[in-house]
């Protein structure tokens, strides 16, 4: 394993920011794995740290294929992590809305450029992704439909679902989108949690990434049995939104199969405790996202269902 500083940035008042990559194997740029780009993506960083551990063991056993190099970048934005902010410390911009970056641009554009210039050219790119709302995801893999996409590759992760997303205008400055535009086959892996560590989901994400790398012939690894991945288009999934506001209680857990009309959760008045809304499924399918904060506004996505 080689530890490399991919990009550094001086701060007026803090130790220098050093975006660090861990490299395994030698030769062709085969896979890059990126963890936390936001300050609350603790699970994403944790999954990467577990990958570093696994790849160290595989490398010691000679189980990384010849002429293959894998790089893991556990955390890009630890400055924000250390002060409890999601976005960039000073101007609150989102590094994952700055790609491909610009070397002469603003600070987060420079960070994005510094990172992207080092992770460009890999055959496969894997980002540990999070969602902007508090919630838990069934571990799954997602790919953006940029026209350069090979969705069938998502099956090689062996997660239950692979989802194809049609990019919106604001997606065009994300890492995943730009990786694809520049020829890397890019995937987002959702490992359930964001600002807490979920060990089971982390296990599943680590095994999925190892399984993928193994299937591509980059490593040789034993992993637990996989799912036969069901591929679906994001437009064919359903979002169930809250019709009222108050205290939210989920009555179901992710991964469960539900039928149309089933009660998935309730919302109660925060002062007198009366139930103000029952949240019912509008479709039959499997819950793959569940909102998890105690308070909820109206029109908030509280469940996502794969039909």
């Amino acid at each position: 394993m080689k530890k490399k500083i991919l990009f550094s940035l001086r701060s007026p008042y803090r130790e220098q920011l050093e975006v660090t990559g861990f490299c395994f194997g030698h030769g062709k740029k085969s896979a890059a794995i990126v963890g936390a780009m936001r300050g609350n993506e603790v699970q994403q960083m944790y999954v990467c740290s577990r990958m570093v551990q696994e790849l160290k063991k595989l490398e010691a056993k000679g189980h990384i294929a010849d002429d293959c190099e894998i790089m893991v970048i556990p955390c890009v934005n630890y400055y924000s992590m250390n002060i409890g902010k999601r976005f960039w410390t000073m101007d609150n911009t989102d590094i994952n809305r700055m790609f491909p970056g610009y070397v002469q641009g603003e600070t987060t554009q420079r960070i994005a450029d510094g990172l992207f210039s080092k992770i460009q050219g890999y055959e496969y790119g894997i980002q540990l992704a999070s969602f902007y709302q508090p919630g838990n995801f069934l571990p799954h893999v997602k790919m953006m439909d940029t026209g350069f996409t090979a969705p069938a590759l998502m099956k090689d992760f062996g997660l239950e679902y692979g989802i194809i997303r049609r990019p919106r205008p604001y997606d065009t400055t994300t890492l995943n989108y730009n990786w694809q535009i520049w020829g890397t086959k890019a995937f987002s892996v959702y490992a359930n949690a964001t600002d807490i560590i979920d060990e089971n989901a982390a296990d599943e994400a680590v095994y999925a990434i190892l399984r993928f790398l193994d299937t591509q012939g980059i490593i040789s690894a034993n992993t637990p049995p996989a799912y036969v991945t069901k591929l679906t288009d994001e437009s064919k999934t359903s979002q169930i939104r809250s019709e009222a506001a108050g205290v939210f209680k989920s009555l179901i857990s992710i991964g469960k199969r539900v039928e149309r009309g089933d009660v998935l959760g309730i919302i109660s008045d925060p002062f007198d405790g009366e139930v103000v809304s029952e949240i019912r499924s509008t479709v039959s399918g499997t819950i793959y996202f569940e909102y998890c904060a105690p308070l909820i506004n109206s029109n908030t996505v509280c469940f996502k269902i794969i039909k």
């Binding site: 506001a245 925060p270 506004n297």
Partner: peptide, 10 residues
């Protein structure tokens, strides 16, 4: 208008 969690509308 949207209802916020605790007795308020946006």
């Amino acid at each position: 208008s949207a209802a916020l969690a605790v007795h308020e509308n946006l």
